[in-house]
Design a protein around this nucleic acid. Structure first.
Lengths: 247, 247
DNA sequence: TTTAGTTAGCGTATTTTTTACGTTAACTTT
DNA sequence: AAAGTTAACGTAAAAAATACGCTAACTAAA
């Protein structure tokens, strides 16, 4: 959290849209914000994990730092996807008041760089690390948010969908091991559609960059599935070759 | 150009990467920068059209304003694509000196919002409008640039390529009328590849959103080609229907 | 006026990719 | 041992992408 007088640049901030998938829901990580409303009472709402950047702090590093400070999550790949610079984006009086209070600066307008990521909620280490002021909220049921954070989230989701349609979810975003079914469910959650499991499997198997591991699922009440991992090297080669264009 | 004492926000700037296509080259619009080098002589190099934003100025509007002020180009659609915030991105001493001189501020670090666009150089109105301190430079032969502008350009080109592979170049970027051959050449220049003209034509004709006009080319020493226009409404419908995923 | 040179515009056969759909295998729980 | 559940595979049909050659319509030069 910002302390008054900290050496920040009060014009620029970063915000992180962390998508998380568990069994069958796509969620987004939000933190609670407490503020004093116009009638003098203490109110609550949610905001994205984000913060002003420090003087001379790199934007990417500021995003990682912020995420760790506010949620405990670390070593998460963060992808910048947009920046927001409308002069009125923080104009609600309670937002301005909160900013002035928490930053120790007289705030006029803030330009924010938005980052997104995607993680597996049920990975114990991730789950464990979430501080208790941060919570996972179903993407389809995001409540009223501070600032323009609802816009930032829907924008981030659009970017994630676009990425997913045009290349495998792979690169930085996949967990170390995943079953084909889990991957399919992930696709279905993000694209908000249903896919044919046989055709999806064929597509995955044909792609050389999803590599089958020896490990199987354990303790499941059905035929256990093999785990796969995403091989970045193979993928990079494949990507170079397949530069067709589609529209 | 900035005048000392102008009411600017010295932490944030905008930069415009304007790609232009003429007969068979993809170019980028650069402006000359004069500065006094370490041995006291006047030197020249190039930079992207860009500027600090004014206090409380919208980023998108700042980009349009800057482009118009520096190059005369107006009513150009500008697409944001990245936000650059490495602390050392303006660290060359001559860059710092130039910034201090032109802005009238003591500059530490500048975060810049980058925009790109694509226009037809031979459109007389565009061509006419370019001020004489701005020049079109072949994308493949960009000289040494100020700041990290070379990085910004290659990043912008990558974004343009990505866009082009995943949807028609259409939306805001196409000129009002274009022949299929011109469109193909544009694709080839941007993607840096060759395409089969018959198959390309088939693809365009099958797409319902490229609409044939009655007007033909005139005065060309060969069979004149029909002009086409991009119909955004048809495209928006098409886009909604065709949300497959490929990888 | 004719000829040469140039790009526009079309068609078809082949290969590759996508889609649609059913059945057996391997595990846990009752 | 039986019931329940998801994994894993295959094939035929439709659609899309690719490869390739020829005629049409214009200007410029002879």
């Amino acid at each position: 959290m910002n302390l008054p007088g900290r050496n920040i640049n009060p014009h620029i901030s970063v915000d992180c849209v962390i998508f998380g998938f568990s069994t069958n829901q796509l969620k987004v990580l939000l933190i609670k914000r407490a503020y004093t409303n116009s009638s003098g009472r203490l109110s609550n709402d949610h905001k994205l994990p984000g913060d002003f950047i420090a003087i001379n702090e790199d934007l990417d590093l500021a995003a990682s730092r912020t995420l760790k400070e506010l949620t405990g999550l670390k070593d998460i790949y963060l992808q910048q996807f947009a920046f927001f610079g409308m002069p009125d984006r923080i104009s609600k009086s309670m937002d301005i008041a909160w900013l002035n209070e928490t930053s120790g600066h007289k705030i006029q307008r803030v330009v924010t760089a938005a980052y997104y990521s995607l993680i597996n909620i049920t990975d114990t280490n991730s789950d464990f690390a979430i501080k208790n002021n941060a919570t996972w909220i179903d993407v389809k049921q995001v409540p009223d948010l501070a600032f323009d954070h609802a816009t930032i989230i829907s924008n981030g989701l659009a970017h994630l969908q676009l990425t997913l349609r045009n290349e495998p979810i792979g690169f930085e975003l996949l967990p170390e091991k995943i079953t084909i079914r889990e991957l399919q469910t992930l696709y279905e959650m993000i694209l908000d559609c249903t896919l044919d499991n046989r055709n999806f499997r064929k597509k995955i198997l044909k792609s050389t960059y999803m590599v089958q591991l020896e490990e199987k699922q354990r303790g499941v009440a059905h035929k256990p599935a093999y785990y796969y991992r995403f091989d970045r090297n193979i993928y990079e080669k494949y990507k170079k070759e397949s530069l067709g264009f589609n529209f």
